[in-house]
Amino acid sequence: MNFARDIMTIACVSTGAFFFLAGTVGLLRFPDTLTRLHALTKADNLGLGFVVLGLLPQAGGLRDGLKLMSIWMFALLAGATVSQLIARTVRRSGAG
């Protein structure tokens, strides 16, 4: 049982790290601000999601797990709204 939990943690955290990697590569490779914004908000949010998922088995109980999930939800909400704000600004300023 313990072993299975650890396997799941390793798998999910690795996936999360992979998405962070992809996001960073996107940040470095994408040509302009708006495309980089895509990389940042989408890939990193997913990466965080997988890390949270991976940590769920290690969490002490249901409440700790839910706490982790709620943090992810906060991050998602922030990412979704802030990315819109940045996109607007970029479009208005003509830098995109």
Binding site: A22, G23, G26, P31, K42, A43, N45, L46, G49
Partner: peptide, 24 residues
């Protein structure tokens, strides 16, 4: 959607040809 979105961006970023057609 968020999973697909992440995979989509990741795929594009890691693709050596960088398949982007950005626009509004």
């Amino acid at each position: 959607h968020s999973v697909v979105a992440g995979i989509d961006v990741a795929g594009r970023a890691l693709n050596p040809r960088l398949p982007l057609h950005p626009g509004f």
